[in-house]
């Protein structure tokens, strides 16, 4: 039986993003065929892809507000159509800021803006903050990350505006009840963060990643592509992944093997493949 073709991934390169190459590498390692598409290419090209990634960086240098200007690009219109068709869409860091500013998540009332990724709130510091954190995947979620429910994934974050917040009272409780707060900052054992620094930016409910109601669009602040290989994990990271990393000392092939972020990309690519199979079958 011929092997199913690899799902096709488009990594959208807005001017000023800077994580497009390692994101494409991580998608490729997870089984996708990844292309980098410039922001001003023909939006009709998106229809030929099975999944989409908005990478990290500084689109339009965060002018006016992180993600605000890229959210107005024409290619977002086409992306909205693809998302409505159920294709997986992942925004990482600046990509998450674009998805929030464009109303893709949480998407409760069409494309209304329901959320903000506001400046970090941190005791004794301001501005950009970069470290490793632990994320806990929600127990029950409509997201394609559901297959990783309750898992703890360490990865780095690096942002100045990553605080999920909203003016709508009770919104995050609602979202959490619906499983849309897919990723929450936690400690190494997986207990949800009670405060700083485990919750590095003051996000409501320690939210690190929020999806839309259908579950196919995910906006997350930390960087799974920087934790895609075991060798990227710091040797003294607390928890089982740090231990795995130390155990692989001296073994290059193991360090080259999957890290904690790989599972996230694998879940996404798997969801894209499953969706296409279902569409092809009908």
């Amino acid at each position: 039986m011929p092997e199913a073709p690899r799902p096709r991934a488009a990594v959208i390169q807005f001017p000023g993003v800077n994580c497009e190459y390692e994101s494409a590498r991580a998608l490729a390692a997870a089984g996708a065929e990844a292309d980098i598409l410039r922001w001003n290419e023909d939006p009709a090209r998106l229809a030929g892809y099975d999944l989409f990634l908005l990478p990290g960086g500084f689109s339009y240098q965060d002018r006016v507000r992180a993600g605000a200007v890229a959210a107005k690009e024409d290619i977002l219109e086409a992306l909205a159509d693809e998302a409505a068709a159920g294709k997986p869409v992942l925004g990482i860091c600046n990509g998450a800021q674009v998805l929030v500013e464009a109303g893709f998540v949480p998407g409760l009332r069409g494309e209304d803006l329901e959320l903000a990724l506001a400046p970090n709130r941190m005791p004794g510091r301001r501005g950009y903050f970069s470290e490793w954190c632990h994320l806990r995947v929600a127990d029950s979620t409509p997201s394609w990350l559901g297959i990783l429910s309750e898992r703890v994934l360490p990865m780095p974050f690096a942002h100045g505006e990553g605080r999920f917040t909203s003016r709508r009272p009770g919104l995050f409780e609602e979202l959490a009840a619906a499983g849309q707060v897919v990723l929450r900052y936690a400690d190494a054992e997986g207990a949800v963060a009670a405060g700083w620094p485990e919750n590095p930016n003051g996000s409501e409910l320690a939210a690190a990643g929020v999806c839309n109601a259908a579950g196919n669009v995910l906006a997350m602040m930390p960087h799974p592509e920087r934790a895609a290989w075991l060798g990227q994990v710091p040797e003294l990271l607390p928890g089982p992944w740090g231990w795995k990393r130390r155990r692989a000392f001296g073994e290059w092939p193991r360090l080259k093997g999957p890290g904690p972020g790989h599972a996230l990309f694998a879940a996404m690519v798997g969801a894209a493949a499953a969706r296409r199979e279902a569409v092809d079958a009908t």
Binding site: R65, A68, K72, L76, E101, E111, D112, E114, A116
Partner: peptide, 14 residues
């Protein structure tokens, strides 16, 4: 900013 194509200069959620 209210919707994707409406408004730019501020996000009323913060």
């Amino acid at each position: 900013t209210r919707r994707r194509r409406q408004g730019l200069l501020l996000n009323p959620h913060y």
